[in-house]
Design a protein around this nucleic acid. Structure first.
Length: 282
DNA sequence: AAGAAGTCCTGGGCGC
DNA sequence: TGCGCCCAGGACTTCT
């Protein structure tokens, strides 16, 4: 479940380990992970290209290459993008493997294949399959309480669902939505339009705080996520509601147990004490 | 037209 | 021991 902190961690590793190196050879094992890009086109574009920079938009990586073309990567749920040593042994479900100029290897692996790769020219990034519906990044200065409040106003959707909508805020997934709602003391059953300005300010602060803290811990590893160096993150130790069904709430003095409900076929974890139902709801 | 539901995909966990 | 069922969920497509 690479969400913003996990993707940012991978980006930082790519910045350190990949930028400035040239791709000498590449092979694509599973062409169905490509979007709007042919396997031959991918290989021809990668081979001989130096990597210029590694950027991030929401949960997506933008790896800029020479000749004004970027490799866009969405890791889906189980995607891994790792820069390894020359003797890196490709595990099962490795779909792209590229040899680097000084002997290293760039490998893309994705067990469930929900992720994808795409090539797009610099001047067409906004129209690409990968980025066309990606809104303001959750850690961008443009993501302000005012903007969030504006985006929420009038919406009848559940808060949970809205926060997962990448066109509204880019970068949150199920884990950090649960954690941010907990920190802000907002019920997962709340509806967007019912949030007060103060609610939105707390939510905005909670989102930034949990994402920033997780980046510092190199992200959350529940099952498949690894950093660009191929190692697990550490924030799973600090989750306060996600995956903690039945455990006592970590808030001092709160004796409630964390509950799990299903909203649009997704698990939501929350504390019924700290995140009381909105007024008018049983 | 917004919002909800369905779909893809595979490995791990569990029950019998 | 092993088979089969169910679950996890990001983001698109389809339905209401």
């Amino acid at each position: 479940m690479p969400e913003l902190p996990e993707v940012e961690t991978v980006r930082r590793d790519l910045q350190r380990r990949l930028v400035g190196r040239t791709i000498r050879a590449a092979s694509i094992v599973q062409p169905d992970i490509l979007r709007r890009t042919g396997p031959v086109q991918l290989v021809n574009t990668l081979v001989g290209s130096e990597v210029v920079s590694a950027e991030r938009r929401g949960k997506n990586l933008v790896i800029r290459l020479e000749r004004e073309v970027a490799l866009l990567v969405n890791l889906g749920m189980t995607g891994q993008l790792v820069v390894g040593a020359a003797d890196h042994r490709a595990e099962a479900h490795t779909h792209l493997i590229a040899a680097l100029s000084d002997g290293g290897v760039l490998a893309y692996r994705d067990v469930r294949r929900f992720g994808h790769l795409e090539l797009a020219p610099f001047d067409r990034l906004e129209e690409s399959f990968t980025l066309r519906n990606v809104g303001v990044d959750a850690l961008s200065p443009e993501h302000t309480p005012e903007r969030l409040h504006e985006a929420m106003s009038g919406r009848t959707a559940l808060l949970k669902g809205a926060l997962l909508d990448q066109s509204m805020i880019a970068g949150l997934g199920n884990i950090y939505v649960c954690e941010a709602m907990f920190r802000a003391g907002l019920s997962p059953r709340a509806r967007c339009r019912d949030l007060s300005r103060e609610d939105v300010v707390r939510l905005h602060d909670a989102i930034r705080a949990v994402l920033t803290e997780s980046i510092a811990a190199e992200g959350t590893t529940i099952s498949d996520y690894v950093t660009g160096a191929g190692v697990p993150g550490g924030f799973q130790e600090r989750l306060r509601v996600y995956g903690r069904e039945g455990q006592v709430c970590t808030t001092a003095g709160c004796e409630h147990r964390i509950e799990r409900i299903v909203q649009s076929n997704r698990s939501t974890f929350y504390c019924p004490g700290c995140q009381a139902n909105p007024p008018g709801m049983e």
